[in-house]
Design a protein around this nucleic acid. Structure first.
Length: 681
DNA sequence: ACCTTGTGAATTTTT
DNA sequence: TTCACAAGGT
């Protein structure tokens, strides 16, 4: 049965009127906030608005050498808007970070001033902590702190060499150079490490201030690749960039005027995800434009109920930037009526959507009660009932990446990487470096694995083009005979067995053949110093288990071999996941990761807890419709938004499968989903 | 009975 | 990084 096809004349007319409201605001330079729920065509409205400005103000802007700014939250969104808008020199589409850095990077004198202020502030904070926090009590009682600090700075190398050791070993190693009068500080090793970390930081910052005074350091640099500041090296990361931009723009009127006069139209996509500091910058520009009576249009496009990240401004925007003209679009262009009814109840605010289609009946939503044991049979049931196939996939939402890996059938490979020393000590990078679908963000080793798997798949496939297999420089110079020989060698690599054997085979041929072209291809692929399996393992060992004792080398090597011997299907599934080309009929995602997507058939696996919160979802249903204090309300809203984003992905069919007992909060569920059915397989 | 210490486990996402 | 908990000390 087809649905979601017919649109009524009135609806089209109504949509046009809403779009006209935006155009009118643009003409009058009235700042707006455009709110549209999930699937309303928000990006469409944004792009139409950009086109309107280009068509109607383009000539004037060109003449004055002015531009339109469109800022987005992600690089993916930037690319999508550029693609849908088409080429336009007038519109600068970029992420907020890229744009802000572009605006301030040439004001180095002012940046240095802000940076100095930041360093001094940080030093003050650190000193304060050392003075007041209880865990530094024994340090506070030391007579000659400077002597202790000097000693620890002298033995910095020794300190870092031992930092990963257990408490006992660490203590012994430090006592070798630490005078006896300070041994009391070592009674609690974790407090000691925290103390020394702060001491080193203060030292670094002070040295940095001196270098700035000596004009040895002259530039502040924003580096988008890192997630942490290295303030003492003049490197700032994402958050600090926003902070510095906010401060500089607040302080310097001239810069404000330059921005306003150069960019009279600023449009913000997904404003709810934007940091408060950014809203503050825009508010500042807006106020100043009114003060000097220069024209400036600011348009926020988004939806407060889809704010699922803590750093996003969400509904605080109405306080931070008051007096915006509110424009709402209440049509839904994505989902069947049954879905829309449920998502309206979840958000439960003044955005009550209705379908733009007159043939939107025919979807279905149900809430089931089940358990861990019958997840599989639940999914099987809907594979049959919904005729799931490669053309009609089933998308299943789970809460953690660990489950995504497991259900997408590369759990062992994922866990073998995750349990390496490198990922244990960089646990915050696990998701990005192992599961990022942006290749440039994969970690060194996952990236290498990715390239090798890619190579293996290409060699196996008869459809692979020469261009995709090797660098142009290689095949360009080859005769027909040479090319044929090279291909024969490549084909002789063993691609039938495990990943480990594939790599062994590559190296074996490498060391037997005289074909320089083959060697060049392998060198381009691996970028190693030595090309044999033993050295390859050592290379992995060095990257994944650096800093380990002699005794643990053997077991670590075994772990690496294990990683390479995981069933090759797992490597392949991981590879397909990274490429977003999963071949299974059922595809798993995290709730968060589905933002902006839409799927015909959705199953959401849900339970009481998430992370440290023992009752994230249960308390949402318990509190639905109740009056809440501000802390409770914040938690409630946060869960509500996540639930709203997840449920609103569905176009036609939606099932919630709840894995814990719901008897305590059944009423809340019933209010939203109608019934709670028990699933027994 | 209470306090201190060490160890291991734990969310998501973006720039 | 932060938290919970077990083990060990006072």
């Amino acid at each position: 049965m087809s649905l979601l096809i017919q649109v009524s004349e009135e609806a089209i007319e109504e949509e046009r009127k809403i779009q006209q409201q935006i155009y009118d605001a643009i003409d009058e330079y009235k700042n707006i906030i455009f709110n549209a729920g999930a699937g309303a065509g928000k990006t469409y409205a944004l792009i139409e608005s950009l086109k309107y400005i280009i068509e109607n103000k383009g000539e004037l802007l060109n003449r004055h050498n002015q531009n339109i700014i469109c800022i987005t939250y992600t690089n993916v969104a930037t690319n999508e808007i550029r693609e849908r808008l088409g080429n336009s020199k007038l519109v600068k589409v970029s992420t907020i970070h890229e744009r802000l850095w572009d605006l301030i990077k040439d004001y180095q004198k002012q940046l240095i001033e802000v940076h100095k202020g930041k360093l001094i502030e940080e030093i003050g904070k650190l000193r304060g902590e050392l003075k007041t926090e209880a865990k530094f009590n024994s340090y506070q009682n030391i007579e000659n702190k400077n002597a202790f600090i000097a000693l620890m700075i002298e033995y910095k190398d020794e300190y870092y060499q031992n930092i990963d050791k257990g408490a006992g070993e660490f203590r012994t190693a430090i006592k070798i150079f630490l005078d006896e009068e300070y041994h009391g500080l070592l009674s609690n090793v974790s407090n000691f490490k925290s103390l020394i970390g702060k001491i080193y930081k203060i030292k670094n910052f002070e040295e940095c201030l001196v270098k700035i005074e000596n004009r040895e350091y002259k530039k502040v640099i924003y580096d988008a690749r890192f997630n942490n500041d290295k303030l003492h090296k003049m490197l700032i990361s994402h958050d600090t960039l926003l902070d510095y931009a906010d401060k500089i723009i607040e302080k310097h009127k001239r810069l404000r005027q330059i921005i306003i006069d150069k960019y009279p139209y600023i449009l913000i996509d997904e404003y709810q995800d934007t940091d408060e500091k950014v809203i503050n910058i825009l508010k500042n520009l807006s106020d100043y434009s009114q003060e000097i009576k220069h024209n400036l249009f600011i348009g926020y496009f988004g939806d407060t109920a889809q704010n699922i990240y803590d750093t996003g401004v969400g509904n605080k925007i109405f306080e931070l930037h008051p007096n915006l003209e509110n424009i709402a679009k209440l049509y839904n262009r994505r989902s069947a009526n049954e879905i829309i009814e449920v998502i309206n109840k979840i958000r439960n605010d003044d955005i009550v959507q209705e379908s733009i289609y007159s043939d939107a009946d025919g979807g279905s939503v149900k809430f089931y009660l089940g358990s861990q044991d019958n997840i599989d049979s639940f999914i099987d049931r809907y594979k049959t009932e919904w005729n799931i196939s490669s053309d009609n996939k089933l998308h299943c939402l789970v809460l953690t990446n660990e489950l995504v890996a497991k259900y997408n059938e590369f759990g062992n490979f994922y866990n073998s990487l995750k349990s390496t020393q490198y990922f244990k000590s960089n646990w915050q990078n696990v998701t990005t470096e192992i599961l990022s679908q942006d290749l440039s963000k994969l970690g060194t080793i996952p990236n290498l694995f990715y390239r090798i798997i890619d190579f293996k798949e290409k060699i196996k496939s008869p459809k692979t083009l020469i261009v995709d297999l090797m660098n142009e420089k290689i095949y360009k110079k080859l005769t027909f005979k040479q090319l044929k020989d090279l291909i024969d060698i490549l084909k002789s690599i063993n691609t039938d067995e495990s990943f480990k054997q594939f790599i062994e085979s590559i190296f074996q041929i490498y060391n037997e053949t005289d074909d320089e072209n083959y060697k060049k291809i392998i060198k381009d692929l691996f970028e190693l110093e030595n090309y044999n399996f033993e050295d390859f393992v050592s290379f992995l060992l060095n990257k994944l288990f650096s800093n380990i004792d002699e005794e643990r080398i053997k077991e670590s090597k075994e772990k690496i071999i294990e990683m390479l011997e995981v069933d090759y299907n797992e490597h392949k599934k991981w590879f397909d996941f990274i490429n977003k080309k999963e071949e299974n009929d059922v595809i798993y995602h995290t709730y968060h990761g589905t933002k902006g997507e839409e799927y015909e058939n959705v199953i959401i696996l849900m339970q009481n807890d998430f992370g440290r919160d023992r009752n994230k979802f249960s308390s949402f249903f318990e509190n639905y419709g109740n009056e809440l204090d501000s802390d409770e309300l914040e938690k409630f809203t946060n869960t509500r938004n996540l639930l709203y984003v997840s449920c609103s992905r569905a176009i036609r069919n939606l099932r919630i499968f709840y894995l814990d007992d719901t008897s305590e909060f059944k009423d809340g569920i019933k209010t939203i989903f109608g019934t709670v059915d028990e699933f027994n397989s």
